[in-house]
């Protein structure tokens, strides 16, 4: 459940509420940023900026605009993509090989207690290549359906359902 009460307190600038929100959303946000940047130091910088923004802009959030998670996700994606245009990023990017979030997951050995590590590992193993690309573009990079269909050269009408199949597999892996 979305913590509506906590979000309302955050919006009225309650510091305790901010700390709780940070506990709940920071690790996911960090992951999104990292899957764009593939760089721990830069991701840390961006994460700080993102949560400063969350604090400042919280009063502008409304459930009518979407999920709170989505709202934070948007801020994080935009901030991370902004960072990819910076000089410091471009210098480091030369050595980067990982392109998808999956590469990060495959390399990772320590998962925090909040994560169903077994489920995630299981998911990585059975993930089809097309799912890697679809989830990466739509979820982690925030592409529109049209942009994703052009990039992947698959019909626009199938993007939505293809993506659902990929996410369903994730959900199955996690619940088992």
């Amino acid at each position: 459940m979305q913590p509506d009460e906590l979000i309302a307190q955050l919006q009225s600038k309650n510091e305790k509420a901010f700390e709780r929100i940070y506990e709940m959303y920071s690790e996911a946000t960090f992951g999104i940023i990292n899957s764009v940047l593939h760089d721990e130091v830069l991701s840390e910088e961006v994460l700080q900026d993102v949560f400063c923004k969350v604090w400042d802009k919280a009063p502008t959030y409304s459930p009518k605009k979407g999920r709170f998670f989505t709202w934070v996700l948007n801020i994080a994606r935009n901030a991370a993509i902004d960072k990819t245009r910076s000089k410091s990023f471009k210098n480091q990017k030369k050595n980067q090989t990982a392109d998808y979030f999956v590469d990060i997951l495959e390399d990772k050995s320590n998962f925090s207690a909040q994560i169903d590590a077994i489920g995630i590992k299981k998911y990585i193993d059975l993930l089809e290549p097309i799912c890697k690309k679809v989830i990466d573009l739509l979820f982690f990079k925030g592409f529109t359906q049209k942009e994703a269909s052009e990039k992947l050269e698959i019909p626009l009408g199938t993007i939505k359902t293809r993506n659902r199949i990929c996410i369903n597999k994730l959900r199955e892996s996690l619940t088992v």
Binding site: M1, Q2, E15, E19, Y22, E23, S26, E27, A28, T29, F30, G31, I32, N34, S35, E40, S43, E44, L47, Q48, F51, C52, R67, F69, L73, F101, I104, L105, K108, N110, F111, S112, Q114, I115, D116, A117, G119, I120, Y123, I135, F139, F140, I167, L170, R171, L174
Partner: peptide
């Protein structure tokens, strides 16, 4: 709710580590 929960798991897994310690800096 369920989709969001799954996506939160997936994104958390993509984090290099848990960023608990950075809260102090942000505060």
């Amino acid at each position: 709710e369920e989709i969001e929960k799954a996506l939160q798991q997936l994104s958390m897994a993509a984090a290099p580590y848990s960023p608990e310690k950075m809260l102090t800096k942000i505060k």
